[in-house]
Computed example of a mutant assay.
Amino acid sequence: MDGYVESGKIPGIVTLVSRRGEVVVDAFGKQSLGGGSMRRDSIFRISSMTKPIVAAAAMILVEECKLRLNDRIDDLLPELADRKVLRRIDSPLDDTVPANRPITLRDLLTFKLGIGIVMAPPGLYPIQIALDEAGLTPGPNPLKVAPDEYMSRLGRLPLIHQPGEKWMYHLGSDILGILVARASGQSLEQFLHTRLFAPLGMKDTGFHVPAEKLNRFTSSYMAGKETGELAVHDEASASRWAEPPLFPSGGGGLVSTVDDYLAFCQMMLDKGVHNGERILSRPSIELMITDHLTPEQKADARIFFGEHSGWGFGLAVNTRRVDLATVPGRFGWDGGIGTTAYTDPVEGVIGILMTQRLMESPEPPGVFLDFWTSAYQSIDD
């Protein structure tokens, strides 16, 4: 890992590997270019590593019978009632047919609600343009729209596919966060803090970084368009994450540390229990980490899943071993601003890597691959 810092590819890295009670953490490089040294408790934008946390929050409400997996969600999200569906992905927005059925909570959790990120060049299809013009296109920066307005704008657009038909990335988690808030009667951050962060001791996890913690916040970087050298994406000292967001994104809004995220992963590995306190039941955890996609749905999303993974509730599940780390049953996800975390029940391994360099494609960058190879090559029993 140190080689990535020395080469200038990444300003700083924190790694954590846990196995059967032993935890090893290393910090390399700087929190920002020219700034202070990276620390074990440095705070990172974990982006899409938010998704498993919000899925777990939804399952808490399922266990309390405040939500049901197969119930239609338009009682709480009336903006999604009576959906229209495009005849084809390249259809004009008014070339639609009625949805075959309502959207369910299960659809949100498995990303089969019928709308999400279109993996095509920007502006290729009318629905892409409409999502962008409505301010709903996800990216590395917080959305500038409040949750109720988000739903209002989304409700004016058709679905791309029939509910349950195709897997489409991301929007399901953003909608899920709004559903959790409405079902619980709390803001998403309040519910996450009360039911997950406080019980798990995740003291540095939230949707923004308070002023007293900004000295531990990392700056984030991306590849420059012309030279390829690092360019600033978000400077910690003037960060977009320094204030509570207008839209607390269930798909990618959280900041966290390696130790905070370890607490969440360890709870998942321990079948829903943390320090003797039950957060979720074992059946809920097992349902979350089961692959819920058909072979055809995975084939359509090969850029995300390759030949080795599927999708559970808010996270990927390895289904086939194709390298050292893809152990069947291993689960987790990556964050687009340069983080990755997976939990392996077979080997008892939890691995977390946090960097500040934005990913340039859905395929994992070299630093992710090398981290996982290094972690798994060390297993000798």
Rank of each mutant, 00 (worst) to 15 (best):
V24Q: 10
A198C: 06
I160T: 09
L287A: 14
V14A: 04
A263L: 13
K66W: 00
D234Q: 06
R278D: 05
P102Y: 00
S281R: 10
P11N: 05
G3Y: 13
L108K: 13
L80G: 14
S18Q: 10
G250W: 00
G8E: 01
L76G: 13
I352R: 10
F368M: 09
R20E: 14
S32N: 03
N318T: 05
T194Y: 12
I10R: 02
L171P: 06
A181T: 03
R101K: 10
A375C: 11
Q356E: 04
L188F: 09
G139F: 02
L324N: 06
F313C: 03
I53Y: 05
K166Y: 03
Q162D: 06
G29P: 10
S32Y: 00
H274P: 04
G3F: 12
E226P: 03
P142N: 11
I350Y: 08
S32I: 01
G253R: 01
G224M: 00
S48L: 04
T319E: 10
A198E: 13
T50Q: 07
F197A: 14
V85R: 04
M222T: 01
G139S: 08
F304S: 03
T194Q: 15
G206I: 04
V258L: 07
Y4G: 13
I103A: 04
T110K: 07
D270V: 02
P78W: 04
N215I: 05
I53T: 12
Y150M: 11
R106T: 12
R240N: 14
K203I: 15
L93Q: 03
W333R: 04
L113Q: 15
P92D: 07
L69R: 15
E360L: 15
R330Y: 04
D174H: 08
L324I: 03
A27I: 11
T294K: 09
